[in-house]
Design a protein around this nucleic acid. Structure first.
Length: 552
RNA sequence: GCGCCCGUAGCUCAACGGAUAGAGCACUUGACUACGGAUCAAGAGGUUGAAAGUUCGAAUCUUUCCGGGCGCACCA
């Protein structure tokens, strides 16, 4: 019996009361089933009687009493009791609870997957940095969270594409080119250029491979250096992200948007919907029709398209490529874009609540043993994605960035996430996986083929077994919730609780026969419980892009 | 000035309007003839920034303050 199945039982019981005339309500589509914090409150609890009291015009406890009687008759439910103001505390039959282990093993890697977002085609755009330098910490939070979000949405049934928009057009690119060119000539980079040491490295690489660039006429030389440096810097970003296990399905060049006339096309599309007008020699989009605080210019008085025009065209292009939900992950310094991006969707004739979502992530602060690491481009103390991975490893970096909700500012201590102790939650979770793997290895070594032998779920009667089964049964709901709320950190928090629950079980319940002890049904049932725990931890870590080691 | 986000244990942070606000670390005290002790058990630690409101019930929703972060281009 899973929480979802139990919710269906509660709905059936309500429908029964309604048709019998004892209750006068509309049977709700959703019944909230929760796992009580206190074990004294049974395996599951529901507040449905409290929620329905007003509509029914009856005291919540009265509804609860009637419903509890019905529920207690249901197969798989051992008891249903009314508590407090009208909660119903439900205890399952041991066997009904234990069946969860079988379902997990049968579903394998698919356990936790659902169909809540089936049929949705989702574009998740994140990072989208200029190709003018290395990816830094601000990008890194999204590299981890965006990738995990895409995995979670996929698990919820959506078709997902991860997309990186390359800002490869405009004055920043020219400054980048000019900086590299200056460095190649051994000159100081321009005042408003890019200062980092990587510029010198890029210049040296390019000169070594293409020395003839230095001899080009002045007006051809900067573009030549710009293009050579662009290619190398983009490749470097792609390489680093691949190491970080964040692999994009689409790298979309802003230039290509202009070269394919998509900007004109997007502009025409907006014009068709009637939100475009001219004023002071410029062409504007009336985004104030849809909650933006001011209208935005599409074409400047000098006839040039604005960057905003690219954004609108890019949105139209995504929709025409078949995505019905465009998710943008932006840093807090871009929160002013939220309303205008939503307005763009509305101006293009879309539903700004359904076709577009903008998630804002707060900034990341780095400390080392409690001391803040100042991030300064000029002083060269920027922490790059590559450096973070070199220092703490991919697993610790990804996990540490994912386990916090993105709407609060985050402080990460480099010393802490390197620790291989409980200070560092990623190791707690990975250790639990390694520990359970070890038990299963030992079982195989002494010749127990648990999978072939099967098990009796009714034997899992220990309190710690019950806790663990309950925690495992939660996983599909956790995944669905993380997808619906776009909050992958829920997976991490769940895994930490599951790891802790497993350790408590392990401490109290001997799994394998000792010495010359006979192998019993209890041993087998516990092995199935272990195997299903390993499966769920592995599935959860997989959603975060973190490895699940068999040994550590 | 206008707008968005945040404020929870000493620290880093959880908690889709639910029951006694929870974890980890740090602190105190226990459990090792160990299926991986990288573990477990127990204790202490809180006026959820403040005040009012909404309701059976508020850290969560509303309003007003206080404090912190970020943003308000015919830049990209």
């Amino acid at each position: 019996m899973t929480p979802d199945a139990l919710a269906a039982c509660v709905r059936d019981a309500l429908a029964g009361l309604v048709s019998a005339g004892t209750l006068s309500i509309d049977v709700p589509a959703e019944v909230h089933i929760e796992r009580p914090k206190s074990r004294e409150h049974g395996d599951y609890a529901t507040n449905i009687a409290l929620a329905l009291a007003k509509q029914a015009g009856v005291a919540p406890r009265v509804i609860a009493e009637q419903l509890a009687v019905e529920l207690a008759k249901t197969d798989g439910i051992a008891s249903a009791e009314v508590a407090g103001p009208g909660f119903i505390n439900i205890t399952l039959d041991t066997a009904a609870q234990g069946e969860v282990a079988r379902r997990i093993i049968e579903a394998g890697e698919m356990f936790g997957h659902g169909d809540a977002l089936a049929g949705r085609s989702v574009n998740v755009e994140f990072i989208s940095a200029n190709p003018t330098g290395p990816l830094h910490l601000g990008h890194t939070r999204w590299a981890a969270v965006g990738d995990a979000l895409a995995r979670v949405l996929t698990a919820a049934g959506a078709t997902v594409a991860k997309e990186f928009y390359i800002n490869d057009r405009g004055v920043q690119m020219d400054k980048f080119g000019a900086s590299v060119m200056a460095a190649a000539h051994g000159q100081p980079v321009p005042e408003d250029g890019y200062q980092g040491g990587y510029i010198l490295d890029l210049a040296a690489e390019i000169v070594a491979e293409q020395p003839d660039l230095l001899a080009l006429p002045a007006d051809e030389q900067m573009p030549a250096f710009r293009e050579a440096a662009y290619a190398r810097q983009l490749a470097q970003q792609q390489h680093v992200l691949a190491l970080f296990r964040t692999v994009f399905d689409v790298w979309y060049s802003e230039r290509s948007l202009h070269e394919s006339n998509a900007v004109e096309h997007g502009f025409e599309k907006l014009r068709e919907h009637g939100h475009v007008y001219e004023m002071d020699g410029a062409v504007w989009l009336r985004t104030t029709d849809f909650d933006d605080d001011k209208d935005r210019v599409l074409i400047k008085a000098d006839g040039e398209y604005t960057y905003f025009a690219s954004d609108t065209a890019y949105y139209v292009d995504k929709r025409e490529r078949g995505f019905d939900l465009c998710i943008y992950l932006l840093g807090a310094d871009h929160h002013g874009y939220v309303n205008r991006l939503r307005a763009v969707a509305a101006c293009a004739g879309d539903d700004m609540d359904d076709n577009v979502e903008v998630l804002i992530g707060q900034l990341v602060k780095i400390t080392r043993a409690g001391e803040e690491v100042k991030l300064s481009k000029r002083a060269g103390t920027i922490v790059t994605l590559e450096e973070l991975v070199e220092e703490v490893g991919v697993d610790a970096a990804r996990y540490s960035l994912i386990r916090y909700p993105v709407d609060s500012p985050l402080t990460i201590d480099l010393e802490v996430i390197k620790l291989r102790t409980n200070d560092n939650p990623v190791f707690t979770v990975q250790y639990a996986h390694a520990r359970v793997s070890s038990v299963l290895r030992n079982a195989a070594d002494i010749g127990i083929d648990w999978r072939a032998l099967g098990f009796d779920p009714g034997l899992l009667v220990h309190e710690r077994e019950n806790e663990l089964l309950g925690a495992l049964a939660e996983f599909p709901r956790i995944v669905a919730g993380a997808a619906e709320l776009r909050e992958p950190h829920r997976i991490a928090r769940y895994l930490e609780a599951l790891a802790s629950t497993y350790h408590r079980f392990y401490d109290a319940c001997r799994v394998l026969p000792r010495g010359d002890e006979e192998q019993s049904g209890e041993h087998l049932a516990r092995l199935w419980l272990c195997a299903s725990t390993r499966q769920v931890i592995a599935n959860g870590l997989g959603l975060l892009g973190v490895s699940a080691p068999e040994r550590m």
